[in-house]
């Protein structure tokens, strides 16, 4: 039973915006994602991919329905509890790297660990190890402004992984990179997924990339059409 229970479960999850007319960005989504799965979410622009990511990432709150993460209902949690889950269980990689510009690569990767209350020394060791893993051991003391797009995105991946989250969310993590770098980043994600058995959910426009995933989820007009 424990083996089979999904790490993420959506039950009739709906997000709607009222702007004169009701608009359902996500419409009654039901979805189960197993631990260690690499899931690609595809669909046209405005189909609700990002909304889904934001809901799973606890950055947004659903209008109705339930979201279970590791069997915990997170829909009605306080800001503090949600922040803690974001910190400990979720890692984000965005289309733009979104690193803190005033901090070095190493400090950026350390940040989630420091937020988690880890000691500086421990955080530094973990961050160094991760940066080495993404191939940036000689760029640790550089600030985002001094790194290339691909390098920054690798720092962002290292940062997403720093607290060893159960779930890594990528919102078009390669969308802003050239094809070659994008492929490299994607391969890196896939490799890390296998290595650490973390669950990866990645939004992508790239069909080749989606095909390499364990599962493809297609969204159209806020509805999950293919699982």
């Amino acid at each position: 039973m424990t083996e089979e229970s999904p790490i993420i479960e959506l039950k009739n999850l709906t997000k709607s915006y009222k702007n004169g007319m009701e608009f359902r960005a996500l419409d009654n989504a039901n979805l189960k994602i197993k631990k260690g799965e690499f899931v690609a979410i595809v669909g046209p622009s405005g189909s609700g991919k990002s909304t889904l990511m934001h809901l799973i990432g606890l950055l947004d709150t659903p209008s109705s329905g339930t979201l279970l993460i590791d069997r915990n209902n997170v829909t009605n949690m306080s800001d503090k509890e949600r922040s803690e889950i974001r910190n400990k269980m979720l890692g984000f990689v965005f289309q733009y790297h979104h690193l803190l510009p005033d901090f070095t690569a190493l400090e950026n990767v350390m940040m989630p660990l420091l937020i988690a209350g880890k000691k500086r020394k421990e955080a530094k060791e973990t961050a160094e190890k991760l940066l080495k893993e993404v191939g940036l051991e000689d760029r640790m003391d550089h600030k985002p402004g001094e790194l290339s797009g691909g390098q920054n995105q690798r720092v962002a991946i290292a940062r997403a992984l720093s607290c060893s989250p159960a779930i890594v969310l990528g919102d078009e993590p390669t969308g802003n990179l050239d094809t070659k770098t994008g492929d490299m980043i994607y391969e890196l994600l896939r490799q890390l997924n296998k290595e650490y058995n973390q669950t990866f959910i990645v939004v992508t426009h790239n069909d080749d990339m989606a095909l390499k995933a364990d599962r493809i989820i297609r969204l159209v007009d806020g509805k999950i059409t293919v699982q």
């Binding site: 950055l59 503090k80 922040s83 974001r86 910190n87 400990k88 989630p112 937020i115 940062r159 607290c163």
Partner: peptide, 10 residues
């Protein structure tokens, strides 16, 4: 926003 995504509370 990013700090929040990383788990920084309000």
């Amino acid at each position: 926003g990013i700090l929040k995504a990383m788990g920084a509370s309000q």
